[in-house]
């Protein structure tokens, strides 16, 4: 009994790392630009497709493909920001406008990926995806262990970048008070552009890892939107550390729910959690109550 609970806990934590990476870009973009990016999950799926085709066509290991997926998605992110979001900064109903735009972008990307690759289930199958580390009665699938560990590495690098570099400081300042950052000499337009790129690149990186731990297809992103939002809202919108905590917490809970009540309810955990958090503590674990402008 105890060892089976330990087993579930470990699986939950490993997935939690990946969820944290999936949510990090979303919360980063919201923090700096106040854009709720509904297109984030479809970008993760785009990243998964990059890894998938590199693996299928050239046998590239999805972990090695991660930087490539991230770079491709960075370019897409920058282009998307330039084309769609850059001019919206002056819009009167900014948050409503941008969320509708990201919704529309998600529809486009969903339709495009569906038309190109069809909505069949796919997964990359490197050797470690079907192997496991075994410690006595407890096992960890290698794929999930690697994915979780690499996610934590990437998140660590991101935190270091935000806290110890000049550009990272500019990003944090813009997150706290955009106008003030501007008055301090921060070019917030450029910060927004790069941050959007980084956020989408993080989605791409997560996608490469997702490609061998979940089966994926374009239309799956609608389900992920609600999952990722629950993590981000739990942590406090725009709070990176909060999102990471939220990811681990919900992932572990979902793992237990999944084990004892079946996998349907595991997904449901996130959705119901979202409602409960929004009801009980809408500002999230680490968030402060913000006034809607």
């Amino acid at each position: 009994m105890l060892s089976s609970m330990l087993q579930v806990l470990i699986l939950g934590l490993a997935l939690g790392g990946v969820y944290a990476l999936m949510a990090s870009g979303l919360t980063l973009i919201f923090g700096v630009m106040r854009i709720v990016n509904l297109a984030h999950p479809i970008m993760i799926i785009a990243g998964a497709f990059v890894a998938y085709w590199l693996f299928r066509l050239y046998g590239v290991d999805p972990i090695l493909a991660m930087p490539i997926a991230a770079s491709v998605l960075f370019v897409i992110g920058v282009a998307l920001y330039k084309l769609v979001f850059e001019k919206e900064a002056a819009s009167a109903k900014y948050s409503e406008m941008t969320v509708l735009l990201t919704f529309a972008v998600a529809l486009c990307a969903d339709g495009l990926l569906g038309a190109l690759f069809s909505n069949t289930q796919r997964v990359t199958t490197p050797a470690y995806a079907t192997d496991a580390f075994i410690f006595g009665t407890v096992f960890i699938p290698k794929g999930q262990a690697y994915a979780g560990a690499i996610s934590l590495l990437v998140i660590g690098a991101l935190l270091a970048f935000l806290n110890f570099t000049r550009f990272g400081t500019a990003i944090r300042a813009t997150t706290q008070n955009r106008a003030a950052a501007q008055l301090m000499g921060v070019n917030v337009g450029r910060v927004s552009l790069i941050t959007f790129g980084i956020g989408i690149a993080l989605a791409g990186a997560a996608g490469a890892l997702v490609s061998f731990i979940f089966s994926f297809f374009p239309a799956k992103h609608w389900e992920w939107i609600a999952i990722l939002m629950s993590l981000v809202v739990l942590g406090g919108m725009g709070k990176l550390v909060g999102a990471i905590l939220g990811a681990f917490l919900l992932s572990v809970i979902a793992a237990f729910v999944g084990t004892y009540f079946g996998s349907t309810w595991s997904t449901m955990t996130f959705f119901l959690a979202l409602f409960v958090i929004l009801l009980v503590k809408p500002e999230g674990l680490l968030g402060d109550r913000q006034e809607e402008a």
């Binding site: 500019a170 300042a173 706290q176 008070n177 003030a180 301090m184 000499g185």
Partner: peptide, 16 residues
């Protein structure tokens, strides 16, 4: 001001 930054950090931002 940056409410979540200290006085010194705010001054550092002033010299960004």
């Amino acid at each position: 001001l940056f409410p979540k930054m200290s006085v010194r950090e705010n001054l550092r931002m002033g010299g960004y």
